[in-house]
Simulated assay, not measured.
Amino acid sequence: MSIISGLNKEFESRVRLGMMSVLMVNDWVDFTEMKNLLQVTDGNLASHSSALEKNNYIEVKKEFVGKKPRTSYKITTMGKKAFQEHLAFLEKMMKQ
């Protein structure tokens, strides 16, 4: 068994790590705020968020506020658990 086998491959990207970190401490975060916090392009954020959504790690809400579309993100219970396990394994690796 590899030393890194306990790491979650879905969190290898710095963008996904950033998204999950932001969502661990915030309820809902909208697209623009997340984009600004992570300093990424629209397309970059959209592709990473859809990958996390596909794995049921985040929930994506699309709505209209007036006539403007708004996309928001929230971490799921499954996402929170998976991310905590990922972080715990990183800590365990650093202590070895």
Rank of each mutant, 00 (worst) to 15 (best):
E91N: 13
S49C: 02
S5C: 09
L38C: 05
K54I: 00
G6M: 07
I4L: 15
K61C: 00
L45R: 04
V60E: 08
K92C: 07
T32E: 15
Y57R: 04
F83K: 01
M94I: 07
Q84V: 14
N8V: 03
K67F: 12
E12H: 07
L37N: 14
K67M: 10
D42A: 10
H86T: 11
T41R: 15
V40L: 04
G6T: 09
L37V: 14
K54P: 00
A88V: 13
K54L: 00
I4P: 01
G79F: 05
T77L: 14
K92I: 09
L90T: 08
P69C: 05
S72W: 03
V65N: 01
K67L: 12
H86E: 10
H48F: 10
V60S: 07
Y73T: 01
L7C: 09
V25M: 13
K62H: 01
N26D: 01
E12I: 02
M24S: 14
A82L: 05
Q84K: 13
M93E: 08
L90F: 12
T71N: 00
M78Y: 06
Q84N: 11
D27N: 08
H48Y: 12
E12P: 03
L17T: 06
T32Y: 15
A51Q: 02
L37A: 14
W28Q: 10
M19V: 09
E10N: 10
T76I: 07
A82Q: 12
S13R: 06
H48Q: 14
L37S: 12
L90I: 14
E10M: 06
A51S: 03
V25T: 14
N56H: 10
S72E: 06
L87M: 13
E53R: 12
K35C: 10
D27W: 03
V25W: 11
F83N: 05
L87I: 15
L23P: 10
T71A: 00
